[in-house]
Simulated scan of single mutants.
Amino acid sequence: MPNTRRMLVLRAVVEDYIRSREPVGSGSLTRNHQLGVSSATVRNDMAALESEGYLVQPHTSAGRIPTQKGYRYFVDRLATIVPLSAAQRRGINAFLSGSVNLEDTLQHAARLLAQITGQIAVVASPSLASSNLRRAELIGLSRGTVLMVVITDTGRVVQRTLHGPLQEDPNALADLSDQINRQCQDLPLDRAADRCRMLADSLTEGRDKSMLRLVATIFDEMATREQTSGLYMAGTSQLTHSQAVSLGDLGSLLDALEEQVVLMRLMRAQSELSRESNGVSVAIGTETRTPELAHASVVTSGYGHARSRQTDGSEADEPVAFVGSIGPTHMDYPATMSAVRAVASYLTGFLAGGGEP
C-alpha cells in the first residue's frame, strides 16, 4: 500500500495517463502537479510504485502507465463521485423528457450516456420478474377468447390471449378485472398469482373461478419465465472511430457485446454491488471475469426499486435493472461514474412516476 505521498503520485500518474494516453514521466508530474518534492523524489516514488505493482514501464526509456492494480487503487480512493453540474443535469432531463414510453426512454438513455462518455452504453429494461402489478384488464375478443392486458409499475405492457370456456359478458369481465386489481395491485407478480388462486379457491365452480386460475397461471409465467431483460446499446461506432482502444482490444470488446447473456449476468451482479459503493460499481480488466473484457472496464449502476423475497423469507430492496458504460481501462473514471449515476437516477425517478414521461 503506497504511503500518502506515493498515493498522490499514483493519482497524478493515473490522471495524466487518462488525459494524454502517453506514458507519464517524473518531470511532467513535477511540472503539472504541486507535489512539493523534487523530480528525483518523484522518480523514486514511481519506481517504488512499479515494484509494488501499481505502475509499469512499457519501454526502458519511457515513463510509466497504471496497471489494473493502480486503476483499482485510484477508483477505490475516490472519496466522492463529483456530481454533474446543474446545466448537465438539466441537459439530461431535457434530452430524456422527450421520450414517449419506457422503451423510448431507455433507447434515449443509452444514446445520451454514449454521447457523454464516448464509450459503449448499455441500458437494460426491467424484467417482468422484478416488476409489480399496476393494473390488469380482461377484455372479451370473441367467443371463448379473452385478452389479458397487464401493466406493471416499471412501465411494461404485456398482452396474453386466454382461450377456453371463459367468461364472455363484458360487465362481468370488468367486475372481475376490478376485483383482481383491488386484491393484487402493487404486488410482485408471483404474489399476485398466489392472491388470484386464493380468490379462485373462495369461489364455487364457474367461469370466474376458471378465469382466476388462468390469470394466476399467466402471472406465474411472467414472474418465473422472463428473468431476462431487453438490452439497449449505443456508442459502438463512436468508440470504434475514437482510437481510444487498440484494434485487438476492440475486436475482443465487440465479441463480449455479442455474448449478451454473459454481459447481462456481469452487469446485473455489478449493479447489485453498486448499492454499497456510492451507487456505482466498477469492474476493471480481469475483475470482470470475462476474457474479452480483460483490457476494458465496466461502470454500472442499478436503477429503480423492487422488493425481492430472499431465501430466508425476508424481503430486500433491489434495483429492477441496470445502466452501464464499457470502455478502455484508461477511461475517465470520475466522469464516467458521474454520468452513469446521473442517468440511473433519472431512470429511477421515471419509474417512480409510473413509467410515464
Rank of each mutant, 00 (worst) to 15 (best):
P2Q: 06
G313M: 12
F74S: 11
S271I: 04
S338K: 11
L128V: 04
G355P: 05
A216H: 04
D312V: 10
V9Q: 10
D255C: 01
P83A: 11
S229P: 06
E276H: 11
N132D: 10
S127P: 14
S325Y: 02
S345T: 15
G144K: 08
A124E: 13
R309T: 11
A256N: 05
A174R: 14
V215R: 02
M1F: 03
L133R: 03
H33M: 12
G206Y: 01
R6Y: 01
V343F: 06
G304H: 02
T300H: 05
A109C: 10
M198K: 14
V261I: 08
A344F: 02
L189K: 03
R89I: 12
G327I: 07
A136Y: 00
L189R: 03
V299D: 07
R275G: 12
R265Y: 00
H295P: 02
Q310C: 10
A12V: 09
G25Y: 03
H330P: 09
G285H: 04
S242Y: 03
R72G: 05
S281I: 01
R275K: 13
A40V: 14
T288H: 03
D201K: 12
M7T: 14
V122G: 07
P83Y: 05
L78Y: 05
A47Y: 06
P2N: 07
Q183Y: 00
Q183K: 09
R11T: 12
V157I: 11
E15P: 09
A216T: 05
Y73T: 13
M222T: 02
E50V: 06
L55F: 06
Y232V: 05
H330R: 11
R160A: 09
M198I: 11
L231R: 07
A223H: 08
L173G: 04
R77W: 03
Y346M: 10
S281K: 09
D255M: 05
S229F: 01
L293G: 04
N132S: 14
G53F: 05
V149K: 14
L347S: 10
R275E: 08
L8A: 12
Q310K: 13
L147R: 05
S338M: 10
T80M: 10
S325N: 10
R307Q: 14
R197F: 01
S308W: 04
E318L: 10
R6F: 00
L141E: 15
P319E: 07
Q68T: 13
A192F: 01
T80A: 14
M46T: 11
A216K: 09
A244C: 10
A136P: 02
T290M: 08
P83L: 10
V146P: 01
L254P: 04
V158D: 01
R111Q: 13
F95H: 15
R197E: 14
T154K: 09
L102W: 00
I18W: 06
M331Y: 02
T217R: 15
Y303W: 04
A136H: 00
T217D: 15
L166P: 01
G63Y: 03
T286Y: 00
R143T: 11
D194F: 02
A40R: 15
F219T: 07
P126L: 04
